[in-house]
């Protein structure tokens, strides 16, 4: 491993303030530079590690950029058909109720082809954590319009920008599932700044702990970027996300448990 250190004298085990969890494997992630998936993987791995749940966790990866999640997080993982992760996770949790079960899906997977599975898993109140990465675009297939694409936003299948009248408006799945009695904790977060990363990690930790209570579905949307699909640098994409995505997808809790 080729490393560059700042001041060697400080780099001692007793001074370690932060290092990625071992549950995030050494495999270099296949995501484009600056893609939010990597951060969400990292903090999810950290939460599982910190709560000592590696041997009790079963994840479900989607079809999309994060299809290879199983190469990066060192827990048992099933890779589901496009959009079907909530159905797959439903059976896993019903058959192994003592395990921590999570799904990880992008917006195409969760909000387009998997809309039915998403809504019905939430409506049954499946006791799982659903992580929803919303970057308003199909990343893996090359930047096509997603149900979450903003009006006016250009993609390879909305080259002049999304037109609401003919292409529909951004679908707010998180708002929809928050209205269902089956959901227990619904929040929308981001990972584009260190402060937001800490908040999102806190939300994930809460959701993981809620699963022990068996009160229903926890649903965390993470508004994220797609520098390649948006044709921006990572830093530009984060700024654009703040200015353009957040007004449509405002961050914050949509449903919190009555405690």
């Amino acid at each position: 491993m080729f490393e560059i250190a700042g001041i060697r004298e400080i780099v001692k085990p007793e001074n370690l303030a932060y290092r990625k969890s071992d549950l995030l494997t050494e495999n270099v992630m296949s995501y484009c530079p600056g893609c939010g998936h990597g951060t969400v993987h990292r903090i999810l791995a950290e939460v599982i590690d910190e709560l000592g749940l590696q041997s009790d966790t079963i994840g479900v990866s989607p079809v999309g950029c994060s299809v290879l999640m199983y190469n990066y997080i060192d827990v048992d993982i099933q890779q589901a058909a496009h959009g079907r992760a909530p159905a797959v996770a439903t059976a896993i949790k019903r058959l192994l109720p003592e395990k921590f079960v999570f799904t990880y899906q992008g917006d195409g997977d969760l909000a387009a082809i998997g809309t039915a599975e998403t809504i019905h898993a939430c409506n049954r109140g499946e006791n799982i954590l659903m992580l929803f990465i919303n970057n308003g675009i199909y990343g893996m297939t090359g930047g096509q319009m997603a149900p979450t694409t903003l009006v006016g936003m250009k993609s390879s299948t909305s080259p002049a920008g999304r037109i609401a009248k003919t292409m529909g408006s951004p679908l707010k799945m998180t708002d929809i599932v928050a209205t269902l009695p089956g959901t227990y904790y619904v929040t929308r977060q981001s990972v584009h700044t260190p402060a937001n990363v800490r908040k999102t990690k806190k939300a994930i930790r809460k959701a993981v702990q809620y699963q022990k209570l068996d009160r229903g579905t926890c649903f965390i949307e993470i508004v994220s970027n797609c520098p390649s699909g948006w044709k921006m640098t990572p830093v530009q994409s984060n700024k654009w996300m703040e200015e353009t995505m957040f007004p449509v997808y405002p961050l914050g809790d949509l449903k919190t448990p009555e405690e």
């Binding site: 439903t90 896993i92 192994l96 039915a116 599975e117």
Partner: peptide, 24 residues
């Protein structure tokens, strides 16, 4: 034994995938 009425045949077969993947 768990018995579940799914929202579609599509969901049902993917539940089977999930359960079978757990060795059940």
């Amino acid at each position: 034994m768990i018995v579940l009425q799914a929202e579609s045949e599509v969901a049902a077969i993917n539940m089977v995938y999930g359960g079978a993947g757990c060795g059940k």
